[in-house]
Every structure is written in structure tokens, then in C-alpha cells.
Amino acid sequence: MFAFSVLFCQLFHTWAHGTKSKLPSLVVGLQDIGLLVSRVHHVNHHRAPYNNNYCVVSGVWNKVLDESKVFEAMEMVLYFKMGVRPRSWTESNSEWMEETDIFKC
């Protein structure tokens, strides 16, 4: 299951951006029962401060990982090791911001 999730995680993420009417009914069903992340649950990943909801397969771990600040710690490690500043540390920039109006449900 892990290998399947890794191989197809970008496809699952893409489906989280799709409208229900354009997705296969099986995908919508898997999103509805929480096995795949839905648009409703994924939208917060694309809203300021851009530092939460990183789990794009099912989202089941988002709450635990966000509350324990796992991703904030990973951002710090990347910054100190590679000098890469995460987007959540800066003001929003229209060059990289995604249009979030499409996520209104």
C-alpha cells in the first residue's frame, strides 16, 4: 500500500484539485470515505500561511503532523542545511500563489 501511495501520490493530489463532476465515480467515492484527500480537506494546503495539510494522499495524518509541528521542524532543517526558505516564512507572492477561488464549495 505504501509503494502504491508513493507511486500515485501526484495523481491523488491532482484529483484533490478536480471537481467531482470531472472525476471518476470511484475516485469521488474514495474521497468521500477519506481514503483519498478531497478538495474540501486539501484546500487549506493552498491558503496562507502555507504551512499545513501537506499529506496529499489521504490527509489522515494532517492533523497529527500539523499539531506536532513535524513539517515546521522539517522546514527548519531544510533552511539550515540548504538555505531554502519555505513560503510560509514570507508574504504571499502573486508569482507563486495559486488561485484559490476554484476551491469554494
Rank of each mutant, 00 (worst) to 15 (best):
I102Q: 10
S88P: 01
W89P: 00
T90A: 06
Q10S: 14
F8Q: 04
M74I: 14
C105R: 09
N53Q: 15
F2Q: 12
R39N: 14
V64M: 05
M1V: 15
M1G: 13
Q10L: 12
L78G: 11
M82P: 00
V57E: 11
M97D: 15
G83T: 09
S68L: 08
K104M: 01
H13I: 05
S94I: 11
G18S: 09
W96H: 00
H42D: 04
Y50G: 02
S58F: 01
E98S: 11
L7M: 10
Y79A: 02
H42G: 05
M74V: 13
K63D: 07
H41G: 11
I33D: 00
A3M: 11
L78N: 10
H17V: 02
M82T: 07
S38A: 06
T19M: 07
H17E: 01
Y50D: 07
L23Y: 02
N53K: 15
W89T: 00
S5D: 12
V57Y: 09
G83F: 08
R87W: 04
T19R: 06
M82Y: 01
V6P: 02
Y54K: 04
L78H: 05
F103S: 02
C105L: 13
P86H: 04
T100F: 00
K63F: 13
G29F: 01
C9R: 11
F8T: 15
M76Q: 15
K81M: 07
M82N: 08
W15S: 08
L65M: 13
L30W: 03
T19D: 12
V70T: 05
L23K: 14
S68R: 01
E72P: 00
F8H: 03
V60M: 09
K22M: 06
M1T: 14
S88I: 09
V43K: 12
E91P: 01
M74N: 06
M1I: 14
K20A: 13
E98V: 14
V40S: 10
V77M: 06
W15T: 04
N62I: 13
E99A: 10
T19C: 07
L23W: 01
G29Y: 03
A73G: 07
L23Q: 11
M82E: 12
E75V: 05
